[in-house]
Simulated assay, not measured.
Amino acid sequence: MSELPPDLPRLRTVVTYLRGGLGRAERALNTAEEREALAAQRRPPAEPPAWLIERGIGAGRLPVRVHAGGCWDSRKRCTPIDTDQARRALAEGIPACPRCRPDTAPTPPRHRPQDAGVNGRRHGGGMPPALRFVVYPRMPRAGAVPASTGRSSAAPSVPATSSNSCAAPS
């Protein structure tokens, strides 16, 4: 036997009641999803790993290189490892990345003071460390006269004329 009433007016009443309950449940679900999305935005991003190991292609996927965590040359085949595993891999003869040089870094590159630029801020944005802080000689400004010529650097004087060619005829 059915739990629903058999007559039409009472069935309509039950449907109206259930639609109202469904609406309340959907609104509660939407507010809970919005609250979760806001909480996810407020969470700080996960810190990148300090060390990575790059694996080769194929069934065995043997280690190919060891990278520091902030290496710009790391690829998709890299997996995070801890400091002890990185040291062990380097000691076992797995080559170090020639770009980030984890074999010479006591700590990951993002913590080393030599990677800091002006006022402690990082510079480079993906450039190899060897090319980050190249100092180029200053170029002379346009119109500047070299000091060795002995000429004056003052602007040439223009003779003043008594007639004004822009004046309206009288």
Results as ranks from 00 to 15, higher is better:
79 T>P: 00
60 G>Y: 09
158 V>R: 10
45 P>R: 00
137 P>A: 08
124 G>L: 01
128 P>Y: 13
39 A>V: 05
117 G>W: 01
77 R>K: 12
42 R>H: 11
3 E>H: 14
168 A>G: 08
8 L>K: 04
77 R>E: 10
142 A>D: 06
30 N>Q: 15
142 A>V: 12
2 S>A: 14
73 D>E: 05
98 P>D: 04
118 V>S: 09
33 E>K: 15
118 V>G: 08
128 P>H: 14
56 G>Q: 05
48 P>K: 08
26 E>I: 15
19 R>L: 06
161 T>N: 06
89 A>Y: 00
63 P>N: 08
124 G>D: 03
156 P>Y: 08
79 T>A: 06
115 D>R: 04
149 T>H: 09
160 A>M: 08
20 G>W: 01
82 D>R: 08
81 I>T: 00
165 S>L: 14
36 E>T: 13
141 R>K: 11
165 S>M: 11
129 P>G: 06
52 L>V: 04
134 V>E: 04
35 R>Y: 13
123 H>W: 11
123 H>F: 10
67 H>G: 00
22 L>I: 09
24 R>V: 05
159 P>T: 06
162 S>D: 05
158 V>S: 07
53 I>R: 02
61 R>G: 02
154 A>G: 10
11 L>W: 05
28 A>T: 14
42 R>G: 05
7 D>Q: 06
29 L>P: 00
33 E>G: 08
133 F>M: 07
147 A>H: 10
94 I>G: 02
167 A>N: 02
127 M>D: 09
81 I>G: 00
123 H>I: 12
41 Q>F: 13
66 V>I: 14
73 D>P: 00
85 Q>D: 09
90 L>M: 14
44 P>W: 03
138 R>H: 05
24 R>I: 05
59 A>D: 07
112 R>C: 10
95 P>K: 06
53 I>V: 15
67 H>R: 01
5 P>V: 14
111 H>V: 03
168 A>W: 09
117 G>I: 02
34 E>Y: 12
98 P>F: 02
61 R>P: 02
81 I>W: 00
86 A>K: 01
6 P>A: 09
125 G>M: 10
60 G>A: 15
71 C>L: 01
119 N>G: 03
147 A>S: 10
106 P>E: 10
155 A>R: 06
80 P>K: 03
164 N>T: 01
60 G>D: 15
136 Y>I: 15
65 R>G: 00
18 L>E: 12
89 A>L: 07
141 R>V: 10
142 A>W: 08
42 R>S: 06
160 A>C: 09
113 P>M: 07
115 D>H: 10
112 R>D: 12
20 G>L: 07
29 L>M: 11
100 C>D: 01
139 M>I: 12
49 P>S: 11
134 V>S: 04
28 A>C: 13
138 R>Y: 03
67 H>V: 01
112 R>Q: 15
4 L>D: 10
123 H>N: 10
163 S>T: 14
50 A>D: 04
44 P>Q: 04
104 T>I: 11
49 P>H: 08
1 M>Q: 13
72 W>N: 05
160 A>F: 08
96 A>L: 05
138 R>D: 04
32 A>V: 04
8 L>H: 03
104 T>L: 15
36 E>S: 14
156 P>S: 09
